[in-house]
Design a protein around this nucleic acid. Structure first.
Lengths: 232, 232
DNA sequence: CAGTGGTCTAGACCACCAG
DNA sequence: TGGTGGTCTAGACCACTGC
């Protein structure tokens, strides 16, 4: 008598087991939902949820009529959480502090102007600040805010709350983009982060939009030896 | 007359709109599923799917009995795809090639031994290889494979297929961990990647398990100016 | 205890698209 | 055009957990 898999987690795990154990091989089509539901002793909706979840992880590919195939090249997907820096620091057990370095309105350089879809000579709000963890420099933030999209930002108290945090709470955005790269510390960056000129530092650039309106472009430089971690 | 939102995407979008527009504010509890279903003119299952999806993105938090609250600090979650390097290169329109630098069995250094949960003096398979994009060095891969977990790897043809790709296809894993950091190119790494000693390079370390069995530890060093991108 | 979300079921209709 | 996945519904039971 076949074992019953009558909740979506059980079906999910059993399906993954069959893929791992080679019962269902890469490129092969697996039985349709209805058949699996009958075999597993569950409803089609339950089988559907299990398979849909697996499909979201990239292990299988589903198409109407064509059916469900085990991916040839299982692209794994990891989830990366984009935290507020204060919470990231506090979660690590360190004391968080924050220091505003400069703030002002001026037309951004060409690259920023393009990334924020600004017309030439349009001023934007430029905020530079340092985030500290346990009193040590942690992240240097260099941010441009589109004051056409978020005019309220001009009156935001960036001396007491980071632009990072203020924006998360007050400036809605619908989507964003993040780019991670290794950077060589300039003299100024090194000095601010307590590193040496030329040190290899992790740089993260985040851009957000509210619909099609660019909201902000933030460049974060992490202090030395910082690691970003994810599980998958 | 209220507008009908009778499919989960519509409910999802409308709920997000209410959060963005401040109809539902951070920290506030939103109406229960049943109520929303009535208001939206859909079934509770549909409202549930919409809200569950939003919860997965981190914008709302749900607890039985307590209800659903808009997150105080909307932690955004980005999805990061972990591709096979060959496919990553080919997707960029460049020609991919691969060169094995060395391969052999030997007891790994202490750090690797610990990360792979190996007993002292246990040999592991060490594979070093270079991935090229359009003939230019792209990624230097330095990998240790646990041959207790994956003995078949000893006979794998790593001269023609990258360990990266072979493992994805032949060594099942259930979970993994990824760590990203900035590194300073050693003389050897710089030479292999066509960079200069001391250059700032992006390093990625991936570790995978099959259940509780460590499978492999891969250290990837990207050539200069490489950016990892994600959307959220 | 009782309100809320988590999930299952059976049945239905539909969209997509490979043959 | 028919097989397959995508989704909806109504109703049900259950698991958590705040009160």
């Amino acid at each position: 008598m076949a074992r019953r898999f009558d909740n979506w987690q059980a079906v999910h795990d059993e399906a993954l087991r069959r893929i791992r154990d080679g019962v269902w091989k890469p490129g092969e089509t697996i039985p349709p939902e209805e058949e699996l539901a009958a075999e597993f002793g569950c409803s089609r909706a339950t089988a559907n949820r299990a398979l849909r979840t697996i499909a979201e992880s990239g292990m299988i590919e589903r198409r109407r009529k064509a059916g469900t195939r085990v991916a040839e090249n299982p692209v794994r997907k990891a989830r990366f959480e984009i935290p507020i820096l204060r919470l990231e620091v506090e979660a690590s057990g360190q004391a968080y502090s924050y220091a505003l370095i400069s703030s002002g309105e001026l037309p951004p350089p060409a690259r920023v102007q393009a990334l924020l879809s600004l017309a030439p000579d349009t001023p934007a709000l430029h905020v530079v600040a340092l985030h500290l963890s346990g009193g040590q420099p942690y992240v240097l933030e260099d941010r441009w805010i589109n004051i056409q999209t978020v005019p309220e930002a001009r009156n935001a108290p960036f001396t007491s709350i980071s632009a990072n945090e203020w924006l998360v709470r007050h400036a809605p955005f619908t989507n964003g983009e993040i780019s991670i790269q290794a950077e060589q510390a300039s003299e100024q960056v090194a000095q601010r982060l307590g590193a040496n000129t030329g040190d290899s530092l992790l740089g993260v650039e985040r851009r957000t939009w509210d619909g099609s309106e660019p909201v902000t472009l933030a460049h974060l430089t992490y202090a030395s030896r910082h690691r970003m971690r994810m599980k998958f």
